[in-house]
Design a protein around this nucleic acid. Structure first.
Lengths: 344, 344
DNA sequence: AATAATTATGTGAACGTTCACAGTAACTAT
DNA sequence: ATAGTTACTGTGAACGTTCACATAATTATT
């Protein structure tokens, strides 16, 4: 004899069930759900009671099919392996759910137009109400994204400053300016930089900011080497710097991981941080304060970035006619012990 | 005069459009999409051509509403701030999409039954085909989850060993056994442990494994302190250990971040790693090889964990009658330079 | 050769919701 | 009193798909 499943079959309650219990029509229930005006207080209360009693929740598929909002947002992510994008995603999910929206993800592995086109097309068929795209690298076809998304409200996160689209970004210039000035004020004049990959907005903007800040202070920028965000690339770059006999008393690193690699390389060559060389990072990952020594860095508030992105997107959904605006978030210098005055 | 939007309205192609172009009924198109038998090769080809020409993609909402599979999986995550859960999520997303499923996320902030009930209820209304739940902590009500999920195939990730449900886990016992034996073989006899929070399976199993391995080698386990996965907790715990005069030549840390904190604490007290004290971590985060010194640790393959989770879930969807099975993934000892023979 | 089984295609209904419209009752202004 | 609003509620159709069933064409079986 076959074993019969004892799992109770899930009976979905519908508008009609609620309507029956409340003694109204299904349409009235729909109105209550969607906060329409023109429902009497008395009726609303009765319906709300029935909704709670039946533990009713609207079927998203039906809502979506009936031409209403799908209450779903799509997020296209790029570079999820990196701390920044991953953090943005986590915080976006949170903000999204809090606002009553579902969030579906699609991670994009390259920035080819065709890949993006497919991803957006997919989102359209999903009937999403809005689109959040993490565009950290240059050449992610921002203009085409705007075109492709068509009538779906679009929001970019972590894109370049002054990109002409609705977006939320951190002011990388300001971050690097602060940290570079900090080094200059300590008395450093020989400052090298190991940047992130210059195909990334963040890296390019930090690099430019470092150059500009140095020049504004009347200093000659030291050597700059391009890394790839990993600790290893920071390690290798600093070794290279030392091998080729570069003179420096401070290093501006592309991010915290690269700073970690730099510290290790310096250690191997017997250069103490911060006594011989000052090192600064970027991001303020949770571990940064436990490096040897604790790292001076720039905090990017990914929490705010993700949350603001979602909030602005939802606002755009409700008020599509307001002109796209770029929200700029200020980063914050975090002084710890990896920076000090240069040796005499 | 009102400005007219120049955005071309997105005209969704439907089954009927494809049917018209191919000269068949909509039902036949549906059959082709769903790989039903009983479609002649000639017809199938014609329909497939029409699908490509119109760039047709089925509307998920309609499919879902019509009672078919939704081709959507839901993932309930817990502790996304931690490296492990975040990695699992990223890799699950990837595997999921590769298999043609959408993945929606819901992060759960506590393990209360009520919270879980809400999350699952939500997934049910979403008509998901399967449910993937990250259950890293003890008391996440695994049995209730099985009940609550009812007829929706359920898969747990990162839960306890020997939990009686379909699941994918890493063998934490084996990991800690390897790393502890490694220390013992180097000659250490005084080994302390700073564990992760013992409400987590991973932490508890590693703790037990450390105890058992020590005893099996005829050694008395040193002091054990409970931390909370953060570098800070590792730092504080080691300071406490030193202050209370504990004798140890090796430390088994709950994870890599905690190991980082431990190294810093030891450094502050002038104890060298590994000459005076050996330190081991767990996870093998990307930065681990750039710690000072590079960290000996245990690699957990989160890639495989996430991918296997999705694959097994999809398999369960297709073959629901196969008994739930626990997949165990072996971790791997990674020897670097934070371990050495104890001082004489 | 007739019947049954298999293959191939089509038709109507249903899923659970919103939209457009049609009412009715109550209140306001003439 | 009468028409004109305004507030509230209800009815039928539609969204794009799959399911259950019906039918037509072909092949297998007796």
């Amino acid at each position: 004899m076959k074993k019969v499943s004892s799992v109770p079959t899930f009976r979905r309650n519908t508008l009609h069930d609620v309507a029956r219990l409340a003694g109204v029509s299904y349409q009235t229930v729909s109105r209550v759900i969607n906060h329409h005006p023109y429902v009497s207080d008395e009726t609303r209360e009765r319906v709300e009671k029935a909704i709670i009693e039946l533990n009713y929740r609207p079927n998203r598929a039906a809502q979506s099919l009936a031409g209403a909002k799908s209450r779903t947002l799509a997020m296209l992510t790029f570079g999820l392996n990196n701390y920044g994008p991953a953090q943005m995603m986590i915080h976006s999910e949170h903000a999204s759910r809090q606002a009553g929206y579902d969030l579906i993800f699609a991670n994009v592995n390259d920035a080819k137009l065709e890949t993006l086109r497919t991803a957006i097309h997919y989102a359209r068929y999903r009937d999403v109400d809005g689109l959040l795209v993490i565009t950290p690298i240059i050449g992610m076809h921002e203009e085409e994204l705007v075109t492709l998304s068509g009538d779906i409200p679009l929001m970019l996160i972590g894109t370049g400053l002054n990109v002409n689209a609705a977006s939320v970004v951190v002011d990388q210039y300001a971050g690097t300016r602060q940290v570079t000035r900090h080094l200059i004020e300590l008395g450093h004049t020989q400052i090298c930089e190991i940047s992130g990959p210059l195909t990334w907005y963040d890296a390019l903007e930090r690099h430019e900011s470092w150059l500009v800040t140095m020049q504004a202070a009347g200093l000659t920028p030291g050597i700059s080497i391009e890394g790839n965000w990993t600790a290893e690339s920071g390690y290798l770059a600093v070794r290279q710097l030392i091998k080729q006999g570069a003179k420096f008393t401070a290093l501006v690193m592309g991010n915290d991981q690269m700073a970690l690699g730099a510290i290790r390389a310096l250690h191997e060559y017997g250069r103490r941080v911060p006594e011989d060389v000052s090192v600064v990072g970027f991001d303020d990952i949770p571990e940064a304060s436990f490096f040897l020594p604790p790292l001076t860095t720039v905090r990017q508030d990914f929490d705010t970035l993700g949350r603001r992105g979602i909030e602005s997107l939802i606002q755009r959904i409700h008020q599509p006619h307001i002109d796209p605006k770029q929200h700029v978030i200020a980063p914050q210098l975090i002084q710890r012990n990896s920076t000090a005055a240069p040796p005499k």
